[in-house]
Amino acid sequence: MSEEMPPGPLRYGWTTGACAAAAAKAAYAALLTGDFPDPVTITLPRGETPAFALARHELFADHATATIVKDAGDDPDVTHGALVSSTVRRGAPGSGVTYKAGEGVGTVTKPGLPLPVGEPAINPGPRAQIAAAIAEVATRHGAPGDVEVTVSIADGEAIARKTLNGRLGIVGGLSVLGTTGIVVPFSCSAWIHSIHRGIDVARAQGLQHIAGATGSASEAAVAKLYGLEEAALIDMGDFVGGMLKYVRVHPVPRVTIAGGFAKITKLGQGLLDLHSRAGPVDLRWLAERVEELGGAREVADAVAQANTAIEALEIAGAAGLDLPPLVARYARETAVKVLRDSEVALDIAIFGRDGNLLAR
Rank of each mutant, 00 (worst) to 15 (best):
Val303Thr: 08
Glu314Phe: 07
Leu358Pro: 01
Tyr330Val: 00
Pro324Gln: 01
Pro325Ile: 07
Glu343Tyr: 13
Pro325Gln: 03
Gly317Met: 05
Phe351Tyr: 12
Asp347Trp: 03
Phe351Lys: 09
Gly317Phe: 06
Leu323Ile: 06
Gly317Glu: 14
Glu311Cys: 08
Ala296Lys: 14
Leu313Arg: 10
Ala304Cys: 08
Ala312Met: 07
Val299Lys: 05
Val327Cys: 02
Asp322Met: 08
Leu321Cys: 10
Ile350Val: 06
Asp354Ala: 14
Ala328Cys: 04
Gly317Gln: 13
Val303Pro: 06
Leu326Glu: 00
Ala318Trp: 02
Gln305Lys: 15
Lys337Gly: 03
Val303Asp: 06
Asp301Phe: 08
Leu313Trp: 10
Ala328Val: 02
Ala349Val: 13
Leu357Asn: 05
Ala328His: 00
Val327Trp: 04
Val336His: 06
Leu358Phe: 08
Leu346Thr: 11
Glu311Ala: 10
Asp341Phe: 11
Ala296Glu: 15
Ala309Trp: 09
Gly317Pro: 03
Val327Leu: 00
Glu333Ser: 09
Gln305Trp: 04
Asp322Val: 07
Val344Cys: 11
Ile315Arg: 09
Gly352Cys: 11
Ala316Cys: 01
Val344Tyr: 13
Asp354Lys: 15
Ala328Tyr: 00
Ala349Cys: 15
Ile350Asp: 03
Leu339Ala: 12
Phe351Trp: 10
Gln305Glu: 15
Ala300Tyr: 07
Ala312Ser: 12
Leu346Ile: 15
Gly320Trp: 07
Glu298Leu: 03
Leu323Ala: 05
Ala318Gly: 13
Thr334Ile: 06
Gly317Val: 01
Val303Ser: 05
Asp347His: 08
Ala331Trp: 04
Asp341Met: 00
Arg340Phe: 12
Arg297Ile: 01
Leu357Ala: 09
Asp347Ala: 09
Val299Tyr: 06
Leu326Val: 10
Arg353Asn: 14
Pro324Tyr: 04
Arg353Cys: 03
Arg353Ile: 12
Val299Pro: 00
Ser342Glu: 13
Arg340Asn: 14
Ala345Val: 13
Gly320Asn: 11
Val303Met: 08
Asp341Leu: 08
Pro325Val: 09
Ile348Cys: 09
Arg353Lys: 14
Ile350Gly: 01
Glu314Leu: 12
Ala349Ile: 07
Val338Lys: 10
Asp322Cys: 09
Val338Asp: 07
Asp347Thr: 12
Leu323Ser: 07
Ala318Glu: 14
Thr334Asn: 12
Ala345Asn: 13
Ile315Ser: 05
Asp322Arg: 03
Ala328Glu: 01
Arg332Pro: 00
Ala335Trp: 05
Lys337Trp: 00
Ala296Leu: 14
Ala316Ser: 09
Glu333Arg: 12
Glu333Tyr: 03
Ala335Ile: 04
Ala304Tyr: 02
Leu323Thr: 06
Asp354Pro: 12
Gln305Ser: 15
Val327His: 00
Ala318His: 13
Leu326Ser: 05
Tyr330Ser: 05
Val336Arg: 15
Leu326Trp: 00
Asp354Ser: 14
Val299Gln: 04
Ala316Phe: 00
Ile310Trp: 05
Asn307Leu: 04
Ala319Ile: 01
Gln305Ala: 15
Ser342Gln: 13
Gly317Ser: 13
Asp301Val: 05
Glu343Ile: 05
Ala349Ser: 14
Ile350Pro: 02
Gly352Gln: 08
Asn356Met: 13
Arg340Met: 10
Arg329Gly: 01
Ala328Trp: 02
Glu343Leu: 14
Gly320Met: 11
Leu346Ser: 11
Glu314Trp: 08
Leu323Asn: 03
Pro325Asn: 05
Asn356Glu: 15
Gly317Cys: 09
Asp301Met: 07
Leu358Tyr: 04
